[in-house]
């Protein structure tokens, strides 16, 4: 039961990623894409945690942390680039 719920959640997250990817593709401008990227990375973090849970490895969570950090900095960097503050 629990496994089904977790797996379903993962599938939903995947669908969410696809949706975000659609926005990434569509644009129409850079900021939209960055938003899509942001959303994608957040959903990806959930996927990573999901992977860690099915693999039963706590240590995978370190990856998720790096991931979160990097996505944050990435988005800030793009934002700063856009507003000519880089």
């Amino acid at each position: 039961m629990a496994d089904i719920l977790y797996n379903t959640s993962a599938v939903l997250a995947l669908i969410a990623i696809i949706l975000a990817a659609w926005r990434l593709l569509k644009g129409p401008n850079v900021a939209d894409r960055v938003v899509a990227l942001d959303v994608m990375t957040i959903i990806s973090i959930s996927l990573i945690v999901y992977v860690a849970s099915i693999a039963q490895r706590v240590i995978y969570l370190d990856v998720a942390m790096v991931y979160a950090l990097i996505s944050f900095i990435g988005v800030v960097a793009i934002a700063r680039y856009l507003e000519r503050g880089l």
Partner: peptide, 14 residues
Amino acid sequence: VIASAILLSMLSFP
């Protein structure tokens, strides 16, 4: 990661 910490400061305080 350390570099990105400094990168963050570089972004905030160019």
